[in-house]
C-alpha cells in the first residue's frame, strides 16, 4: 500500500526516467518560474513568512536541521532563495512545491499525510490500543474491588483527616 502511494509521487517520476522523450506535453523547465500568485507582500511580512517556510524545509547538507535554522552556506543560500520568492509574491505552497520539484519530498521535514500516512496512523493506533488497555485495566481493578465484602477502598471524606493519613504514607 505504501509502495503504491509512493508509486504515485516520487517513484513514478523516477520510473519515467528511462523514456523521457515519450512525454507529449512540454516538460517543465525548473529554471523558468511561473508568475507569482500574489502581489509582493509588505516588507515587514517577508521575514516571518520566510522563517515559516524555511522551517519546513530540510537543510540538505545538515542532519535534522531546517533551512531556517542551519548556519551552513547551503542553508543560508536556500533561505535567501525563499526570502526572494516570498518578496516576489509567491505563496507558501508555491515555494514549498518549488523546492519539492528540485529535491523531491525528501526536502520536507514533515512527511505529508497523503504519501506517508503510516508514520501518522501507526502511532495513533498505538495510542488507541494503549487507551483500551488502560480502560480495561481500570475496569478490572474496579470489578475486583466491588467483589470485596467491605468498602476498604473508601477514604475519609474529611480533608484534614485525609491529609493526616496521607502524611503518614511516605
Amino acid at each position: 500500500m505504501i509502495f503504491e502511494l509512493c508509486a504515485t509521487s516520487y517513484c513514478v517520476e523516477a520510473a519515467s526516467a528511462g523514456e523521457p522523450t515519450a512525454s507529449a506535453e512540454a516538460p517543465v523547465d525548473l529554471g523558468a518560474l511561473p508568475p507569482p500568485m500574489f502581489d509582493p507582500p509588505a516588507a515587514s511580512d517577508v521575514e516571518p513568512l520566510t522563517i515559516k517556510i524555511a522551517s519546513r524545509l530540510r537543510c540538505p547538507v545538515c542532519q535534522g536541521m531546517s533551512v531556517s535554522d542551519s548556519p551552513s552556506k547551503t542553508a543560508v543560500e536556500m533561505k535567501g532563495r525563499v526570502r526572494e520568492l516570498v518578496a516576489q509574491g509567491y505563496s507558501e505552497k508555491q515555494i514549498v512545491d518549488y523546492f519539492v520539484a528540485r529535491y523531491t519530498d525528501w526536502v520536507l521535514l514533515e512527511p505529508t499525510f497523503a504519501d506517508h500516512w503510516a508514520v501518522w496512523v501507526v502511532p495513533g493506533l498505538g495510542l488507541g490500543l494503549g487507551l483500551a488497555w488502560v480502560a480495561s485495566t481500570v475496569l478490572a481493578w474496579r470489578k475486583s474491588a466491588e467483589s470485596l465484602p467491605s468498602d476498604v477502598g473508601e477514604l475519609p471524606k474529611d480533608s484534614y483527616e485525609e491529609r493526616l493519613l496521607r502524611e503518614l504514607d511516605p
Binding site: 517543465v28 523547465d29 525548473l30 529554471g31 523558468a32 523531491t104
Partner: peptide, 26 residues
Amino acid sequence: EVPKALEGRVAPTFSLVSTDGDPVSL
C-alpha cells in the same frame, strides 16, 4: 545520500556570467 529529483527531467535553464566575464545561457 541525497535523492536525485532531476534525472529524466529537463535541465533547468539559466543565464550566468563566467569568471572571465562572458555570459553563458543554457
